[in-house]
Design a protein around this nucleic acid. Structure first.
Lengths: 242, 242
DNA sequence: CGATAGGTTGAGTCGCATCAACCGGGGTGG
DNA sequence: CCACCCCGGTTGATGCGACTCAACCTATCG
């Protein structure tokens, strides 16, 4: 199992070697899915739990006239739908943003795992609650923050999430998505994303170069984005270095 | 138990007389909480599951500078936090919008109920999944719909949710909240809510008078709001008459 | 070497916010 | 019982933030 997925589960509670073995045994690897591919179709009952192992994916919805809103971002270690099994059909789509490698767990294995491993089912449960918390925070982001604040807030969140799975180097991490995708996350037009990126860089807080996010002043960025990390329910980080 | 709460649980699956008795036994009634009162403080571990029996409540967050976003609306029959027990602390506040009567179930009773009654725990689980679906749809609403569309969409949702618990008369239901509260739901200023209400009324779709919502043309309202009811996961309604 | 996707820039417009004043009704205190 | 107050709603004027359209630039890839 990749190191950062291991970290992810560790961050969700006690995670034993036995748990790891069980996960590995039931996880089927699906390599290098192309970017901008839909994994799960709207209106279809989910048959697998998908864990992102490499690359970024998202949950999104389309309006009839083509407008698109990305509802959630999935970075390595994230589970795309820890809770979707019981609903008859999904009202959203899960798709890749970059080339993605998935770990896939069939529904019956999931049921078996949650029935027999308290630590793993607690991990799935926590993952679900935290993703709901993120969803709520995004609601606030879209409803009450300006473009500049939204961008700052998103960058703060992503940096912390990437750090939690050990995918940062100091205040730097991958940001492998386009400005248009960022716009669909933030409810902004691609043009305005571009200008807002320039503005935030001119303030000396953040730079985006070559699909990398480089945060120069994290406290100031958090202040700008009115960012309070509580909603991520991160453990007091044992190592900030990533 | 009030008729509409009964309906609510029926709409969430098979709900026996025995289930009803168990709920009644462990539910403590809290009468007439004042409007604009916080039920659960931010950063405090929840000790109860709250079910709204009368009135409307909401989940909201504040930004440091006073901006406020309502993240969820709770109408009679809704559970304020079916899933919050396992998280250490909440990053949001639950408060009343109108005078509210709650049914309150202590944490230990909840654990007991979910452990021993499959039908009730399935109901709680479903309620949680649907509320997550609503949250996602609101994210789209704030990110990608105009003020007029947002309002139309919200009204469509509220009408269906109220109908599901039998609190509509045809295409009419209570709407006991202020325009300022609507603004905090929709990410709009109170002034703009007012103007948008006038606009939607001038179109002949909806009227709001005396804390009542009156929908004149539900299909047209759904079209305007780009509304697709799938996300509510309502059962094929046995009776539309409310 | 051309095609194409992503990024950048400018001009013009519009949706929504803000500020401020005013109205109307229900509750309260004198 | 009346006067007042205050909250919620309404209206107008003005400004700004973000969108749209359109052109152009740049890097990558076949």
């Amino acid at each position: 199992m990749s190191n950062f997925v291991f970290r992810k589960f560790q961050s969700l509670g006690n995670f034993s070697a036995d748990d790891e073995a069980r996960l590995n045994a039931s996880m089927q690897r699906v390599e290098r899915i192309r970017p901008h591919t839909d994994l799960v179709q709207e209106g279809v009952h989910a048959r697998y739990l998908n864990i992102v192992l490499e690359g970024w994916a998202c949950r999104y919805k389309h309006l009839e006239d083509g407008r698109r809103q990305i509802i959630a971002l999935f970075v390595p270690g994230d589970m795309c739908d820890p809770c979707v099994f019981t609903l008859d059909a999904m009202s959203h789509i899960i798709g890749t943003l970059t080339p993605v490698t998935l770990g896939r767990i069939a529904e019956k294995d999931m049921l078996e795992i949650t029935r027999t491993s308290p630590s793993l089912s607690k991990a799935f449960w926590l993952e679900m609650l935290v993703s709901a918390e993120i969803q709520r925070e995004w609601t606030v982001n879209l409803g009450r923050r300006t473009a500049l604040e939204r961008l700052a807030h998103l960058f703060c969140e992503l940096l912390l999430r990437m750090r939690a799975v050990g995918l940062t180097k100091g205040c730097e991490c991958d940001l492998p998505i386009t400005q248009a995708d960022l716009g669909d996350v933030l409810g902004l037009s691609p043009v305005h994303v571009n200008r807002t990126l320039q503005e935030i860089r001119a303030m000396g807080l953040v730079e985006v170069r070559g699909k990398r996010l480089v945060v120069h002043d994290e406290p100031a960025l958090q202040a700008l984005g009115l960012f309070n990390p509580n909603y991520l329910h991160l453990l007091p980080s044992p190592s900030q270095k990533g």
